[in-house]
Structure formats: C-alpha cells, structure tokens
Amino acid sequence: MPRTALITGASSGLGAEYARQLAARGAHVVLVGRAASALQTVADEAERLGGSATVLVADLLKPDDLARVVDRVKSEDLPIDMLINNAGFGLPLDFATNDVSAELDHLTLHVAVPLQLSHAALQVMATRGGRILNVASIAAYIPRSTYGACKQWLVSFSRWANTHYENVTVTAVCPGYTHTNFHERMGLEPGNEGVPGWMWLNASDVVAESLRDAARGKAVSIPSLKYKLIAKLTAILPDPALARLGSRGR
C-alpha cells in the first residue's frame, strides 16, 4: 500500500478515481492537472474518504511546469511511493487531416511526459522500491492511428522496466472503453460513441483491478475478462479487421 501517490490527469476520469481509491486506503495523493478548482474538488473528496491530498497545478506540455512535477517526483524529503502516469487526450483518427502541432502535443503527453516522470521516479525508487502505473489502453493491441501507437510504447516500456528494476513494479494499464468524461471532451455525447453497451467498463472496476495487478507485480493489467480475450484475439485477427474494431468510439 503506497503512502504517497502522485497522479497526473487527476482532475477527472480515471485519475480522479485513482485518487479516491488510494485516499480511501489512507494514502496521501498528489494531484497534478491544469484546472485548480477541479483538482481541489478531488482533493476535498480524498480527505473526506480518509486520506490527504496536495494539489499541484501544472500543464505538462509546458517545460517549466513539467520540471516542477519532475522535481516533486524526485524529492527525497517528500518521497513518492507510487507514480500514476494518467494524463492524456484524444484526437480524431484521421492523422493526415489533424493539425500536426496537435499530434506532436499528443505524442509528448502520452510518451515523452511519462518517459520523463518515470525516469525521475526510477532514480529514487530503484533502491527504496515503489510502483509506477502507466495508463495505456487496449488500443495498444489494435491499429488505431497515433493513439494506439503511443499506448503501445507505454506497454513495451512497462514490460521491460518491470523486469529490469527489481525493486520497482512498472505496470501498463490497458482498459477498454471506460465510462469517464474522456469521450465527452472530444465532443461525443454519452451513448453516441458508436460502441455497444457490453464493451463499456466502469472506472471504479478498472482502477481496482489495476491496483491489484500492480500489487501482484504484473507488467500489464487488462481489466475485465472480455478485454483479456480481445487482447488475445488481436494476435490472430488480420489488421483490416482490427482497424475496423479500432475505428469505433470517435
């Protein structure tokens, strides 16, 4: 059980749910995000649940802000026992028509930022121990424009790091479609995402299972039996069929 967890993208969705579940276990959560008021709402809830919280307002796409978060992760005086790389956003799937600056921000937030924060965390966790959770996606197993490519990087890195650093568990969390506000932020109304109801997961279940898997030392956590089966099927299905599956949701 971590004493202190730093969570990026903590103002809503899976990030806020990680904060709630860890706070309910008595942890101190460091909440990182851009919206101070939303982060404070999560912090207040964390304290009502029995934990404690610190708000760290930062835009991880701004180098100075990211440097402040890196410094917090590396702190010896206020050590972090768990790092949860959760911050992210989605883009339309037609890469060629997307603004390339948006694609570069997408790549930075999903790959370069977790890389830098994980690097900082491993410098202090390698000797004393700790856990890193990289929130990836089942899209890592499915051709899905640059989103799937970014998430595949997180899975590959986590699998390697989990083996290489004996005192640190590094886990890639690969949920399928999950009820959060992620799709709403992309302009999709709830129920109109083009995804069958049976494919949806609850955020509380995703977080609970991923925390259990991290505690067990797993390199990859795929919450729910149905998505475990889907991940296995991706090894035998042809790319055109997988691409059709990956086209849902946006």
Rank of each mutant, 00 (worst) to 15 (best):
E45L: 10
S75N: 07
M186F: 11
P238K: 04
T178E: 01
D44R: 14
S156M: 04
L117V: 13
P63D: 15
V135F: 02
Y165V: 15
S11P: 10
R20I: 01
V220F: 01
S75K: 07
M1F: 09
A53V: 06
K151E: 00
N167I: 01
V111R: 09
E47G: 04
K74N: 06
T146L: 14
L56S: 15
T178L: 01
N181T: 14
T171F: 06
T234A: 03
V168H: 06
V124H: 04
D77H: 12
G246A: 03
G50W: 08
A36K: 13
A43G: 08
C174R: 03
A121E: 05
L109M: 06
R159H: 02
L91D: 08
I138E: 00
L115E: 09
A19Y: 10
V220M: 03
T180S: 02
D205W: 03
P223N: 06
L115F: 14
L60D: 13
P223D: 08
D94L: 08
H106C: 06
T127N: 09
S204W: 04
A58Y: 10
D77L: 13
S204R: 15
S137W: 01
P223T: 06
L242R: 06
L109V: 10
V170P: 05
S137H: 01
E103C: 12
C174D: 00
A243S: 11
N192I: 08
A23Q: 01
A19L: 05
N98R: 10
P143L: 05
A16I: 02
G13C: 07
R144H: 12
S52C: 03
L245I: 12
H183M: 07
A208Q: 14
I230T: 11
L107V: 15
